[in-house]
Simulated scan of single mutants.
Amino acid sequence: MNVLVTGATGTVGAHVVDGLRYAPDAAVTAASRDPVTARERLDCATVGFDFTDPTTYRDAFAEIDALLLVRPPALSRVRRDIIPALSAAVGAGVEFVVFLSVIGADRNPLVPHARIESWIADSGLETTFLRASFFMQNLSTTHREEIRDGRLAVPAGDGKTSFVDARDVADVAVRALREGITGAYDLTGPDALSYAEVCAVLSATLEREVEYTDPSLPRFLVSRYRLEGDLAKAGVMAAIYTTARLGLAARVTDDVRSLLGRPPTDFRAFVRDNRTVWT
């Protein structure tokens, strides 16, 4: 089986490439806008691919059987920026798509993942929706600097989130791709924590105070835009945190354990293992 991995140098994609690189029943190709750099980082076959560049579709999807679909965070206009590539994949003969979605996408039409799921469901493809909860790794990447500075500002209110380790999500994706597992799965950690509780764990582990603040949505959007200059990304982040605020991200499932045969990673263990990131 020939598998194409989009987002191959990202948080989940890189681990999926690792999981498939030596699989006897799969050949993996990493799709990247910079295939030379991706090849150096991932040590696997690569191909040039850009969702917004139709000239890259033909080579990327040639002889591909299965696709790991990861939406680039900057692309929120699904019909314009994502659907043309998916249509090309179907036309090229791709039969199976594992889509990295977000938990609550089936109930929150504000997130672009919901529109992607809808299109894929109507496409006739064999599909797997991995509706992942908020990645623990987002706290060690996107929010790393502010946590280093002693605070975490997200508009999640008192809502709880069942944080999941991206490596667990990648392991599930690898199994789904290798074994043709279909369906929709909510991938969570073993428990749900509020962001106040998250900051309490960080404070205890780092042995210094990390304060949780709950800005209004407008204030959060302005601050993230000033920080990164990407309004679309800030909007998607706001939608995801609104999911938590509304109580839609607190659901804890047993899907990781049932699919992998082991418990999901605990947040406290993740923080202990990665404490140097914030110091």
Score class of each variant (00 low, 15 high):
278 W>D: 05
111 V>Y: 00
272 R>T: 06
223 S>D: 14
21 R>E: 10
88 A>E: 06
224 R>K: 11
68 L>A: 07
225 Y>M: 04
240 I>Q: 06
148 R>G: 15
199 C>K: 02
33 R>F: 06
58 R>V: 14
103 I>F: 06
144 R>N: 04
26 A>Y: 06
237 M>C: 03
59 D>C: 04
134 F>Q: 08
61 F>L: 09
201 V>K: 02
253 T>P: 12
60 A>I: 03
225 Y>H: 08
89 A>Q: 03
239 A>N: 13
211 E>M: 07
70 V>N: 00
91 G>R: 11
137 Q>F: 06
62 A>W: 11
235 G>Q: 06
133 S>E: 11
43 D>V: 05
129 F>L: 13
179 E>S: 15
146 E>A: 00
182 T>N: 14
246 L>S: 09
245 R>L: 12
123 S>E: 11
247 G>W: 13
174 V>H: 01
37 T>D: 08
28 V>H: 01
78 V>L: 09
270 F>C: 10
29 T>V: 15
113 H>W: 05
108 N>T: 10
191 D>F: 03
229 G>D: 08
91 G>H: 07
218 P>R: 06
155 P>I: 02
36 V>E: 08
40 E>T: 08
250 A>Y: 00
19 G>S: 13
269 A>F: 06
54 P>Q: 04
171 D>M: 10
260 L>Q: 04
52 T>D: 07
120 I>K: 01
67 L>E: 08
187 L>C: 07
47 V>K: 01
38 A>C: 07
159 G>N: 04
228 E>R: 14
208 R>A: 10
276 T>W: 06
95 E>D: 15
150 G>S: 11
77 R>V: 08
236 V>M: 13
139 L>S: 02
271 V>Q: 03
59 D>E: 14
75 L>F: 14
